[in-house]
Design a protein around this nucleic acid. Structure first.
Lengths: 148, 148
DNA sequence: GGTATACATTTGTATATACAATTGTTGTAA
DNA sequence: TTACAACAATTGTATATACAAATGTATACC
């Protein structure tokens, strides 16, 4: 992936700017791969993320603020994200009995089943995205990311 | 930046998934910094990118497809992006005399002046984003990004 | 108990983006 | 020269996201 070639510029870009731009280009590519992979399941990356968090709850229901806290990309509107998952039958939402301000969100059986399929697909996509990168380099990347 | 801590999960994440998630977290952080920095100028990152491309043209006008080709994040609707820049007085758009299907987009004097200010701000933001990262590590990052 | 404050979510509204269909223009081949 | 395909941009529409205001509920203080 050559930055200058992709954004079709002749002049060379300062190392700092180049790194940021390069970062964004890789990000675009990753996002595209992932959302393509999720398209057949009719969920966005954000929605997948919510389902995954709910699975991590092991049956314990989550409320909106918990979801928001744990999401990779925090959104300003988790309510409507959940709305869409409800519409698809992947989760259900009830008002929390002990505190009626809160809601309890749970994976449905369908949601669990679909999530399992999505996760398998995601594993493949991750492998394909990272196929040219060694374990050692992955560690290296994680260490570098720590410095941001 | 500790991934597990940020997304508040107890279990450890497989290295591949962790890298992707880590990547997204860094991306969010970068985007936030940049859009905050651009907010005073009332432009989005995409709009800034278009202005920068136009500057790179050195007075030569660009048409929409050229812009699209050179944008870091390709958009499905560059027309309306340009509309917004016109509204702000940063660029103008005329129909290309030699081929009336095309348009010619140019930086205005105001656009040039504002872009200079934005660029100065962006330089600072980049420095601040990358302040903990050495030149050598930047090279390393760029090399790793090449493998995506 | 009544009132103010903080909390958790939802709703309204504006803006951004994606995708497809449409418009207008040019080039080309019968 | 006309009909058709390719091109470049625009428009319509649906969906996504951001931000602020509003709703409803619980808690704390007097």
């Amino acid at each position: 992936m050559n930055v200058e070639q992709i954004i079709k510029t002749g002049k060379k870009i300062p190392l700092e700017s180049r790194t940021i731009i390069h970062f964004m280009l890789v990000n675009n590519k990753i996002n595209e791969s992932i959302s393509n992979a999720l398209k057949p399941f009719d969920v966005s990356l954000q929605q997948f993320n919510v389902l995954r968090i709910l699975k991590g709850q092991n049956g314990k229901p989550a409320n909106l603020s918990t979801l928001n806290e744990r999401m990779v990309t925090k959104m300003s509107n988790t309510t409507r994200l959940v709305d869409k998952l409800i519409l698809k039958g992947f989760v259900d939402r009830i008002i929390c009995p002990s505190n009626r301000r809160k809601v309890e969100i749970n994976l449905t059986a369908v949601g669990q089943k679909e999530l399992a399929k999505m996760s398998a697909t995601m594993k493949k996509v991750e492998k394909s995205i990272l196929k040219k990168i060694s374990k050692q380099e992955l560690e290296q990347l994680n260490n570098l990311f720590n410095k941001f």
